[in-house]
């Protein structure tokens, strides 16, 4: 019940933000209403799914420890740059992906920055937060308004103007390049195709490509076809975006909401005062003391009564089990 309530509250907060940000719907573009409505459902879905996720013992404990480390005044004073640096390297530049594969890192960066750019443009637009006004029809002095306040004045035909009006086209090019790489990889690479599921692994890539291609076709229609087929393409593009937004919390895209846990986890370990739990048997370092204690508590929550084994390193677990087999099951093999 709690996830549903949190989901509804989040959706209502977004509705209020749309109402206020669009100056009481004065700036709201009703042609974009399906996108805005989908984003409200998205807000519900993400909050609901997030609450379900952190209700499991492992995630709940890490959620608390991660935020505890992030919001600790003591940690902030001791290492003020740790959190912003981790956010930049983990969430922005995704350094860990580079350690997995450079080409995957590059392709993921294309998708990531493309989607981020697209989200930064479309969500405020559909919520009526961004508006563009001009004193004359030709618009030599375009004004970009955020929440109804004039922020940037620019010439619509300048480079800045071109970039602002073609931001989504640029995003589409980035996303198509990245998603195509991953799609080809999913068809050719044995590692990627092992156990892959159509709905989980392929649908997200196809959705990104369909959204980007239909979006680019809108520009193509207006530039080269004098708007021919625009209405059909607009509906097709909208359907693709709305369905993807609704799918987002329940499939592979949910990793976007989950990945910040890596920052919380690393920060929790990083701020563990350098105390290391060593293997009881051989003395090899296992993990930070606070982390091992947290894991043992998680295991007890789950009624996994062998939590004391978390203080023995993996190799010693195997050696002990092997020795026990050798001495008591099949003596002296």
């Amino acid at each position: 019940m709690r996830p549903v309530i949190v989901g509804i509250v989040t959706a209502l907060v977004l509705c209020a933000a749309i109402f206020l940000g669009s100056r009481g719907l004065h700036n709201f573009d009703s042609a974009l209403a399906p996108y805005a409505i989908a984003s409200v459902f998205l807000a519900f879905g993400i909050a609901y799914r997030y609450m379900v996720w952190i209700s499991s013992p492992g995630a709940r404990r890490l959620f608390r420890k991660g935020w505890g480390a992030a919001l600790s005044w003591q940690n902030l004073r001791r290492t003020p740059t740790a959190l912003p640096r981790m956010i930049a390297t983990y969430l922005g530049f995704q350094k860990f992906l580079g350690a997995r594969s450079r080409s995957r890192w590059a392709a993921h960066q294309l998708i990531f920055w493309g989607c981020l750019l697209a989200a930064a443009i479309t969500f405020p637009l559909t919520w009526g937060w961004f508006t563009f006004t001009a004193n004359t029809g030709a618009g030599p002095q375009y004004t970009m308004n955020i929440w109804g306040f004039g922020v940037v004045k620019f010439d619509a035909l300048s480079v800045l103007g071109w970039l602002l009006f073609h931001g989504l086209d640029l995003a589409a090019v980035l996303v198509i390049a990245g998603a195509t790489y991953f799609l080809i990889r999913r068809m050719r690479d044995r590692e990627a195709s092992t156990g892959q599921r159509f709905g989980y692994d392929l649908v997200p890539l196809l959705a990104l490509i369909i959204i980007s291609v239909t979006g680019l076709l809108l520009t193509f229609s207006s530039v080269f076809l004098h708007g021919g087929g625009y209405e059909f393409l607009a509906v097709l593009h909208m359907a693709a975006v709305v369905l993807t937004l609704l799918y987002l919390p329940f499939g592979k895209f949910f990793h976007i909401a989950q990945r910040p846990a890596a920052v919380g986890m690393q920060l929790f370990k990083y701020t563990g005062h350098g105390e290391i739990r060593q293997c009881r048997n051989c003395g090899e370092p296992i993990d930070t003391t606070a982390y091992v204690d947290n894991l043992r508590a998680t295991m007890r929550d789950l009624k996994l009564d062998f939590d004391s084994l978390a203080e023995v390193c993996p190799r010693c677990k195997r050696l002990r089990r092997g020795q026990a087999y050798r001495t008591t099951v099949k003596p002296g093999f």
Partner: peptide, 24 residues
């Protein structure tokens, strides 16, 4: 999804999972 925390490595009673800390 994997964030490379190592919970599985140390919870496994058999000592099976490995972890690449750099690749998380």
């Amino acid at each position: 999804r994997c964030i490379g925390c190592g919970n599985c490595v140390n919870a496994c009673p058999m000592g099976v999972p490995k972890i690449d800390l750099e690749a998380k």
